[in-house]
Nucleic acid binder design. Structure first.
Lengths: 335, 335
DNA sequence: CTCAGCTAAGTAAACGTTTACTCAAACAGA
DNA sequence: TCTGTTTGAGTAAACGTTTACTTAGCTGAG
């Protein structure tokens, strides 16, 4: 098998303690001469430290776990990118877990991560149920929520303020002169990405005296392209006079654009569309999608930084509200 | 800290050996009675086995490493999804590594994975340099290449045959009646995804007697949306009479569509476009993109399965050529 | 010359498991 | 009753490190 510290010791004619000290460049306890010899032995044998043994004795695995409901989603992968970046920079590794939004799988993973003794957890883009929270609490490792939050259980989170961002989106449309504005939203029962965006949207309308008795919000189950198409069709059926729509995700927005195209409605000439997220496809759409951007990559980075901060200080972390911003492209017309 | 097997033993008044046997449901060595007692103690103390200690003694970490040049790419994330699926199913975890196409980072990761004693490696979507190969060989763990290959070093791979697939794409266009066909390709120096696709394309033209002395292949550095746009513009400048183009990636194809749109060229009426990959955006494009599909998710799954097969049997794995297929949408017109 | 104090190095325990070996009791066959 | 086998269970070594403790030799102050 692999050479161990023992082999190195033997080869250099010193004790394993000395080798260990040299490996960890412990302050003192060896002369320059022996250091040379040991280094040579290490080189010669091709010795590689065993992180498992190390982990056992100092209770540090240098590994964190990340839970996603959908690894192949475009939002997710951007977050992951950010997370992986800083995690690697700090000499740790990340284990990815695809919960597929299934409770059982999530619990499974939590159990697994616990047994593997990860040092921290990043829980992303999904509701934190009581069950999950209990499991996480039992693990006694720092945890931060990414792009989700929980008012019931206090775990620090990193996300943009969905309501604010939606407010900004709607306000932007109003600024551009639109008065009849519709929304294509996700599930209103979704307390994270559903309701808040709807509320932000309506707040903007209200503040500008544009809120009608029957607000034009069309809610789907999720945030998919397909649902964007469907909801746009519905919206069109109910209100011919709507001149702009706010879609709760870029995927939905792109679906809406496709739907409009099929119905021979020109974007942005006949109707304006603004999205939410700023994922890659938004600039590839035709026309390129104006959208309210979440700094996804950066959110991943900040979340990881926060986690490691907690790991280092042992203190509870402070939640971070990330800034959102409008990125103007070509799907919104000024009236 | 966490309760250990020792605590459980004490609590149940048995030896740690007995507890271990019960935990692993070893064939025999304990009565039903003690099993009950031990289980109860485990429950009561909330004992969770320590995978690190376990890993140390039986040299099994139940973890594999996956290397990607770009975690947030759409091809990548689909592969990852597949990999994660079967890895989890088989009770292992995956550590993701984002090499960012940098040699130093890759070598770093390999070193890290070595120290962490991962049991296998999935190396995805990137050229395998001699340097990488040496590092991998030194680790002495099974490795499979995903969506890449190496003729020099024999590591098993899982991928579609790029040349075949390109041949299929071009043939499809020819079948549809196109005679003047152009290609937007990646880097011809890329021996994996660059050259073979060009060669497949040209082979198809040749076999149908359509190969001109100056073949209309426009090569970019990579496979991005932007490059797709640029190359399409170039292609248009050089040959007005081209009626169809094969793009070496869906991103490029979508870029080409966008470019065409800007130039007021209708797809597929004025020009037909076929892509390569079948990632999510291809069905979201306007018009929806006809493309030659790689079964990405499945490739990830197969690669993981192959890896675990090798792990189990200890034998060298057999490479797998995955099937490609045309998925017809609306970006190609029959002439 | 002696002894305190320092340095380089070694010894061995510990981390939390698994497992080979041992042992005593129970039991079956003669 | 005696012997041999099975069964339930314990003891202790091992996995590859880190680290507290020990030791021997040396230096320099008194």
């Amino acid at each position: 098998m692999n050479p161990t510290i023992k082999d190195v010791a033997k080869h250099a004619n010193v004790s394993i303690a000395t080798v260990s000290r040299i490996l960890n460049s412990t302050s003192a306890g060896y002369s320059e001469g022996t250091k040379k010899r040991v280094k040579a032995a290490i080189e010669e044998l091709g010795y590689k430290p065993n992180a498992v043994a190390r982990g056992l004795i100092n209770n540090k695995t240098q590994t964190i776990g990340v839970l996603f409901p959908n690894v192949s989603g475009m939002v997710t992968s951007e977050l992951l990118h950010g997370i992986e970046n800083v995690t690697h920079q700090l000499g740790h590794s990340v284990i990815v877990c695809n919960t597929a939004s299934q409770g059982k799988r999530t619990l499974d993973y939590l159990q697994l991560l616990n047994e593997k003794r990860v040092e921290g957890i990043l829980f992303a883009s999904e509701m934190l149920t009581d069950e999950y929270y209990e499991a996480i609490k039992d693990m006694k490792v720092p945890t931060v929520l990414v792009s989700t939050k929980s008012q019931k259980h206090l775990l620090p989170y990193v996300k943009v303020d969905d309501q604010d961002a939606a407010y900004t989106a709607a306000s932007y449309l109003i600024e551009k002169g639109h008065r009849k504005i519709g929304m294509i939203s996700g599930n209103p029962d979704d307390m994270i990405a559903g309701l808040p965006r709807i509320e932000g949207f309506q707040a903007a309308l209200r503040d500008h005296g544009l809120l009608t008795e029957k607000p034009s919000v069309f809610s789907a189950e999720g945030f998919s392209y397909k649902e964007g198409m469907e909801m746009f069709k519905k919206l069109r059926q109910e209100g011919e006079d709507i001149t702009a729509v706010f879609a709760a995700s870029d995927e939905m927005a792109v679906g809406a654009i496709a739907s409009a195209y099929k119905m021979n409605i020109a974007v942005p000439n006949d109707i304006s569309i603004i999205g939410y997220d700023n994922i890659k496809i938004s600039e590839m759409a035709i026309p390129p999608l104006t959208t309210v951007a979440q700094p996804l990559r950066e959110m991943g980075e900040k979340a990881a930084e926060l986690l490691f901060e907690m790991l280092k200080t042992g203190e509870d972390g402070q939640s971070i509200i990330m800034p959102h911003r409008i990125v103007e492209r070509e799907s919104v017309k000024e009236l």
